[in-house]
Computed example of a mutant assay.
Amino acid sequence: MRSEAEMMRLILSVAENLPQVDAVALEGSRMNQQAPLDIFQDFDVVYLVNDKEALLAERSWLQAFGPVLIQQTPEESELFPATLGERFTFLMLFEDGNRIDLTLCPYSELPVLLEDDPFIKVLWDPKEVMPQFPAPSDAKFWLQKPTQGVFEDCCNEFWWVTTYVVKGLCRQELMYATDHLYTICQEELLRMLSWQVGLTTGWNQSLGKNYKYLTKQLDEETNRQLFAMRNFTSYENIWQSLVLTQKLFDKVARNNAAKLGYQYDDQTVAKVLAYTHKWYNNQESIQRGASE
């Protein structure tokens, strides 16, 4: 696997040999002092270009980066359309394990470049065309203390959607049930747990994309429950996951509400829990009816 120094020299060398590239910058986790360093970190590279179309029309210059294992070009995707305006990205995982996310950025996109990623450092700018960027900071991604309204919306969404999970289980629609449980209910649980972290250790921190640093902030028992509730390997396990998810959400939400001085809708929670347990206790008769 090529070293970081080798990759950086290669990134600059390719740019220097392309007349369409006027400057090079590095963004992303490598510019974030809080992000752990490992061999899986991407090289998030920006080429400021004066002629993007020429680089797209003739792409042989990409071969200089080495043999590619797999790549994506989001701006050319029909199923997953990109959202970067006039920018164009080559996402490249190479056979040696290195990965470069290379963005071709026209001058017109410079004003929004920093808005998308505050971690950016100019590496090469012979024409001095790059703006002065502030020091990299993860403040944009810090935890946000919820308002009463945001807290209530989180709780309402969680308890409302758990009834969809119950419905799916009663109908034996396990894909429907687990999709709502995992992508909505447990997502709101992670949001609630992130607020617990903010209340406990402060708001001026980031838990990373998809809450990837959250588990480091939680106690051993909470982490055990978090992963136990992702066991969807059987009908019974999905029910148990729902019950455990509700139990943990209720516990954390109550504690957060008390610390924040917010109202918590105990009446609705009690009714939804009763609704869940009513149908859970009737699951044998439900299964029997479905098989008849």
Results as ranks from 00 to 15, higher is better:
Asp266Trp: 02
Thr200Gly: 05
Tyr176Asn: 11
Val122Gly: 01
Leu214Trp: 04
Phe227Gly: 01
Gln172Thr: 02
Trp61Pro: 10
Gln217Ser: 06
Leu69Lys: 13
Lys127Arg: 12
Leu174Arg: 12
Glu53Tyr: 05
Leu189Ile: 15
Cys154Phe: 07
Ala135Phe: 01
Pro19Thr: 10
Ile184Arg: 14
Thr183Gly: 02
Tyr164Trp: 07
Asp250Gln: 13
Leu110His: 01
Ala290Val: 03
Glu4Met: 01
Ser77Leu: 04
Arg9Asn: 14
Ile100Gly: 02
Tyr275Ser: 03
Gly66Ile: 01
Leu193Lys: 11
Met8Ile: 10
Tyr164Leu: 11
Leu104Val: 01
Tyr211Ile: 02
Phe151Arg: 07
Ser291Val: 11
Leu214Asn: 11
Leu242Val: 09
Glu236Gly: 05
Val166Glu: 07
Ala15Pro: 13
Trp195Cys: 09
Glu76Asn: 09
Asp101Ala: 03
Gln41Ile: 12
Leu193Trp: 12
Asp44Ser: 05
Leu193Asn: 04
Glu58Pro: 00
Leu207Phe: 03
Gln63Trp: 03
Gln72Lys: 05
Val68Cys: 07
Leu181Arg: 05
Pro106Glu: 04
Gly261Leu: 11
Leu84Trp: 08
Leu218His: 05
Pro67Cys: 03
Asn32Val: 07
Thr147Cys: 08
Asn282Glu: 12
Ala25Thr: 13
Pro136Thr: 07
Met175Pro: 00
Val197Glu: 08
Phe80Glu: 05
Ala177Tyr: 02
Gln240Ser: 14
Met31Asp: 01
Phe88Leu: 00
Phe80Ser: 03
Ala25Gln: 10
Val122His: 02
Asp219Gln: 00
Thr183Trp: 15
Glu236Val: 09
Tyr211Val: 00
Glu187His: 13
Gln41Thr: 14
Lys52Ile: 10
Thr215Trp: 00
Ser285Leu: 12
Gln148His: 08
Leu181Met: 12
Leu37Thr: 13
Leu214Lys: 10
Thr222Phe: 05
Val46Arg: 06
Thr178Gln: 14
Tyr213Phe: 15
Val49Ser: 07
Ser206Gln: 08
Gly168Tyr: 03
Thr178His: 04
Glu6Ser: 04
Glu53Gln: 13
Glu188His: 14
Ser194Phe: 04
